[in-house]
Design a protein around this nucleic acid. Sequence first.
DNA 1: CCATTAATTGTCG
DNA 2: CGACAATTAATGG
Length: 220
Amino acid sequence: MDVHHCVNLVPLFRQLSLSDQAKIDRLVKHREFNRGEQVITPSQDKKLVIVAKGLIKLYQLAPTGKEQLIRFIHPGEYEGEAELFDQVNSNVFGEATVETTICYLTQVDFQLVLKEHPDISIKIMNLMAQKLHRLEKQTSFLTMTKVEERLATFLNDLEITNSSNTIKLPMKLKELANFIGTTPETLSRKLTMFENQDVIIRNKTQIKIINQDKLEDLFM
DNA sequence: CCATTAATTGTCG
DNA sequence: CGACAATTAATGG
């Protein structure tokens, strides 16, 4: 019957009984976006956005007009709990990077859900706490002095989560540069620098770490 | 094939 | 290191 079934995509809702899921499902609205369209803007009504299909790039706009990548939202993930509780969407934007289908709950509908399901409220608080923790980590990450340190840390983390010394960069260099707080030019130079120092071997966005010790030396 | 976007390289402040 | 410009590579239609 329901084509999208966003409710089933979200771990948070999946723990509920089918009848409860159905209740929530009735409150959920759907929408599709083309590549490049704004899914989330600061001015729009507060809502909980769930990605059903596609990919959303979430970023903040600095006063200078430059954007700072926050994260990507993959299918099954969502954004907006915080905004649903407190006030302003502090200039956070979400842009569809491919054809994307979202499901969303408006603020009032979401509050209805919370009222009926206190256990969901608690879950969400836990998730928000986790989120804050990650945010703090990212902030200290960005204040690490040198770009090399940040890049080395990023590559090392990637190696760990991939459990392989051959890794594929999960995003465009332009976006990675933004993520670690530098420019594409500098990033490009650092990568070739690492390559010349025989720390890595690179082919496009495929990177092989050939000297783990040297890499670790860069940030330890 | 052309047009658009991304990546690289050079140079400067 | 970042900003800017120029060039080259990759991508997508």
